[in-house]
Design a protein around this nucleic acid. Structure first.
Length: 909
RNA sequence: GGGCGAAUAGCUCAGCGGUUCAGAGCGCCUGCCUUACACGCAGGAUGUCGGGGGUUCGAAUCCCUCUUCGCCCACCA
């Protein structure tokens, strides 16, 4: 009967919760992971699953190792994303947020968040996440918001926050400014339009190449490189902007590449950061006209066509160095109100019609898009709040240089260092309503300050202040996550106990957004690192290596996987298929192939359990009380393998090699315990005496108990379920908080390893012979084993029953005279196995088999001999390597000699 | 324009401080319902470890180079 996880998993999860198993234990050394808070509106996708499964494996591992494991969960208010979701819902009713007004809109969002915000939290439970739910946080919690405000005020007081008037990334869809990180580069096939600008004096045209003709009404001049001989005569002349006729000057600037386009650059300072810099150098007194409005349509800002968004913005944020608004109408009436891309087409048409379009070239270039809605971002001159990042980054890099924290896998170091060392100031203001409102106040007399409380009057003049209308970037709250969640700025016991944390598990996609900034806030406000290790795992992709996303429709719903295969299977696939930092590749079109291995493994574990538990009496002696003299070779072997698994799994988990740990455990459970030990032991269970049986019971329980513990972090549900059934379990014991297996060095037994390998080999050879001669499985065979060299006859004598059963033999002669007619195979130190095959044996076939085997050995020996006679090898290679090669050579030579003898006695040519 | 990563069995990928490392899962072939498991058992086949050079006694594994793919960063409009 197959294992059905569906009734088991919810029951087990509830038991953990009821027992408080996920609370950090008292008195122990803490081990802290803070969750990368998913957006409140998110529903679980495979990326979350991967991220949380990894964290859960680590936290469960450390919990079992005795640490006070604190995995702090929570959600992020996700300003833009959440506001967008609610606005979309409003749009269905034909409303905009402006219809509701700020206060009612925010209420609406809260309402939405309270209703749906726990979805992802509940889903995390379904996949087994062992978070400390008693400490669940939300970035808009009252306490948390206090921390955000405190941080803002402190940075303000330190002079690290300033009002900047510059070209920022503006999303015309989200109607807000974005940080540099939020505007993603996308390589795009575009056009380079060559446009003729008529000279004002009527003496002809100059041609300018641009990718963005729609910004031309915002041009304030043309520049060329001062070294460019072609245009020398143009200096000081003026051209008229086509279609608008506005006259603008021509000047020179070093930034212009002579080789690109025509070597003449149109300068649009309000819609291009580069042009902004040029304009400030070349025409410092010039105005910088905005010709694309916040919603992406053409037109002057503040004109009668101003958008609702503009109208609803509060005042009071005019920067002191702000340049004047344009005085003349620059955008021709026919383009006002036209979307920028529509306008581009129209403008090109009009230029073509008036013969001002010289040519259009194809041109690949990077376009920036909003990371939330994928809209092409509009560079736009505006006033925003910025954080000076350099002083913050420097503190981090000092700690980094001292090795106070590190990134795994290491290959991310270069990326991290480059970003940190070239850090740019952070635009933290967002023109949204959902988020932490910026605590900057301005009074009618122009006094401006940041305040921890909402002030009633200006502290300087007593005038009534107004608050900045914008909110803070979401990441300006989540960068405080490792300490704000524990009560900062209060010096709470939690903060003292759980800061700094230990491991931060996330994808490299938010290395800059979040990880780097948490490091900065941690060092700055807490005076030390927020965590020791940054573990960057891969990204969930489909088999075409495309990132899984809603828009591509290539996602996999983890809950569907749980329903079909079980949470353990989902977790297994996430863990076993991801080498350190590698992407997780899943096939959304073939869930069976993708997740069946995990389900199959769980089923195997279940059935091992069925067998083992079915054998056991109510009381099983603990292994340590078993008389060691009762242990057979098979017993000693499996105990050694178990301890090898403990050693390997522990080491791999400590090194974040979760896949290796999972695979070694699976190998132990399936290929060693089930395939060999359980099978080898069946004869003793059936016909052994009491001592033999009870010894087997003890060994089985030890091994099964051990592997359940080792596997628990990866497949917690089924291991807990099975572990509960082991004899002697007290009703209140839980595997989730049980002790991690300890390596018992007295059970490490390399001799048993070698000896039992010989037994296995002998069995495998007999099975091969059976298959080759097509002897039906039911036919019992007679075989002889002759032990030679270091292979001891006692080895095979001791495991006689095992060999008889697993090789399906009728009789086994040991070191007797091999049957004259039979199939031969050689192994180990020249030991031999012979299967009696009167009548069935084909001498010619035997000759072929044996001589092939002999040839193979000869060839290997040749290579070995070459190495061993090579003086540089013998002298330079490590001693133990040479010794091993010598041993190998001897064994192979013995095998070869035995084979040669066989061939001779069979009369092969 | 910089930086990083990947190319290994039909598929998806491990292995990368050098000498049983040529592996796993899935798929495939041949037998088996051998009383824990057909989500299983046993036995098999399959790769010039992307091309080329180099270092070395020895290289999927280190170095260089080329090719083909990804990703990140970047003010050639």
């Amino acid at each position: 009967m197959a294992y059905d996880p569906r009734p088991v998993e919810p029951r087990i999860y509830k038991r953990w919760l009821d027992a408080g198993a996920f609370q950090p234990r008292d008195g122990a050394e803490p081990y802290v992971i803070v969750i990368p808070p998913p957006n409140v509106t998110d529903i679980l996708h495979v990326g979350h699953a991967l991220n949380n499964v990894i964290q859960d494996v680590l936290i469960r591992f450390e919990r079992m190792r005795g640490r006070a494991a604190e995995w702090l969960p929570g959600t992020d208010h996700a300003g833009i994303a959440t506001q967008n979701v609610v606005e979309k819902r409003l749009a269905k009713e034909g409303k905009t947020r402006f219809d509701l007004g700020r206060e009612r809109f925010v209420d609406e969002v809260w309402c939405f968040v309270k209703k749906t915000g726990n979805t992802i939290i509940e889903q995390l439970k379904v996949i087994g996440s062992s978070c400390d739910w008693s400490r669940l946080r939300f970035t808009l919690d009252e306490d948390y918001s206090r921390a955000v405000r405190e941080v803002f005020v402190r940075l303000w007081d330190e002079g690290l926050i300033y009002r900047g008037h510059r070209v920022i990334h503006w999303c015309p869809h989200c109607l807000t400014a974005l940080s540099d990180e939020e505007a993603e580069h996308h390589e795009t096939q575009g056009n380079l339009y060559h446009i003729k600008y008529p000279l004002e004096d009527g003496s002809g045209f100059v041609t300018v190449a641009t990718t963005r003709p729609e910004t031309m009404f915002g041009d304030i001049g043309l520049v060329f490189n001062p070294k460019d001989a072609r245009y020398k005569s143009l200096k000081g002349k003026r051209v008229k902007i086509p279609l608008s006729g506005v006259a603008i000057p021509i000047a020179t600037d070093d930034a212009v590449e002579q080789g690109f386009g025509t070597g003449l650059l149109k300068v649009t300072p309000a819609h291009d950061a580069n042009d902004f810099d040029i304009a400030r150098r070349v025409w410092p007194a010039s105005e910088m006209p905005l010709v694309i409005r916040e919603d992406g349509t053409l037109g002057e800002e503040g004109g009668q066509e101003a958008t609702a968004a503009v109208k609803n913005k509060g005042g009071g944020q005019v920067g002191r160095d702000r340049l004047d608004r344009p005085t003349a109408v620059r955008v021709p009436r026919e383009f006002v109100g036209v979307d920028r891309f529509e306008a581009r087409k129209k403008i090109i048409e009009r230029l073509r019609a008036t013969a001002l379009l010289e040519k259009v070239e194809q041109h690949r270039h990077a376009v920036r898009r909003c990371y939330r809605c994928d809209t092409v971002v509009e560079p736009r001159l505006s006033d925003q709040w910025f954080v000076k990042m350099k002083p913050l980054a420097e503190k981090v890099m000092q700690g980094y240089a001292k090795g106070e924290f590190h990134i795994v896998p290491e290959r991310w170091n270069a990326t991290f260092e480059h970003w940190m060392n070239n850090i740019r100031d952070w635009n933290i203001s967002r023109q949204l309503w959902w988020g932490h409102r910026i605590p900057v106040f301005t009074c009618a007399n122009g006094h401006q300050w940041a305040d921890r409380e909402d002030p009633e009057k200006c502290p300087k003049c007593g005038a009534t202040p107004s608050q900045d209308p914008d909110v803070l970037d979401t990441w300006f709250s989540s960068w405080l996550w490792p300490f704000a969640t524990f009560g900062w700025p209060e010096q709470t016991p939690d903060l003292a106990r759980f800061y700094p944390g230990h491991t931060l598990v996330t994808g490299p996609d938010i290395l800059f957004f979040w990880v780097a900034r948490m490091l900065m806030s941690g060092y700055h406000f807490m005076g030390q690192k927020p965590f020791t290790t940054v573990y960057l795992h891969g990204i969930a992709r489909d088999t075409k290596h495309r990132k899984m996303s809603k828009s591509l429709g290539n996602g996999i719903d983890p809950l569907v996987v749980v329903e079909k295969f079980g949470a353990d299977a989902l977790r297994w696939t996430c863990v076993a298929n991801t080498a350190l930092g590698a992407d997780l590749l899943l096939d959304p079109n073939d869930l069976e192939t993708t997740f069946a291995p995990g389900r199959n493994f769980a089923n195997k574990l279940w059935n091992i359990g069925q067998f083992v538990l079915g054998q056991l009496p109510n009381h099983v002696r603990p292994l340590e009380t078993v008389d060691r003299r009762l242990l057979t070779l098979a017993d000693r072997w499996i105990l050694a393998r178990a301890n090898n698994a403990i050693f390997a799994a522990t080491g791999h988990l400590a090194d974040f090699r979760l896949d290796e740990a999972a695979k070694r455990c699976s190998e132990f459970a399936w290929n060693e315990l089930a395939d060999w030990y359980v099978e080898a032991v069946k004869p003793r269970l059936v016909s052994g005496d009491e001592d033999a049986k009870s010894t087997v019971h003890s060994v089985l329980v030890y091994c099964f108990d051990t592997v359940l513990r080792l596997l628990h972090p990866v497949v917690p549900f089924i291991t807990e379920e099975l572990w509960q059934k082991l004899p002697g379990r007290k009703s209140n014991e839980l595997l989730a908080v049980a002790k991690w297996p300890e390596l018992l060095t007295q059970l490490v037994d390399s001799d048993a390893d070698v000896q039992f390998e010989r037994v296995k080999k002998a069995i495998e050879l007999i099975r091969s012979i059976r298959a080759e001669y097509r002897i039906p499985p039911k036919t019992r065979l007679r075989a002889t084993i002759v032990a030679r060299g270091n292979d001891r006859p006692e080895t095979f004598v001791g495991e006689r029953e095992t060999i008889l059963r697993l090789a399906q033999l009728e009789s086994l002669a040991l070191n007797g005279a091999p049957a004259a007619v039979g199939a031969h195979a050689v192994f180990g130190d020249g030991s031999e196995v012979v299967v009696a095959l009167e009548g069935a044996v084909d001498v010619r076939n035997e000759c072929r088999r044996l001589s092939e085997e002999k040839d193979r050995l000869e060839k290997q020996l040749e290579g070995l001999a070459a190495r061993l006679t090579n003086q540089s090898f013998v002298s330079r290679a490590p001693q133990d390597v040479v010794a091993k090669e010598r041993e190998k050579e001897k064994a192979w030579r013995d095998q070869r000699d035995v084979l040669a003898g066989k061939l001779k006695s069979l009369g092969c040519s």
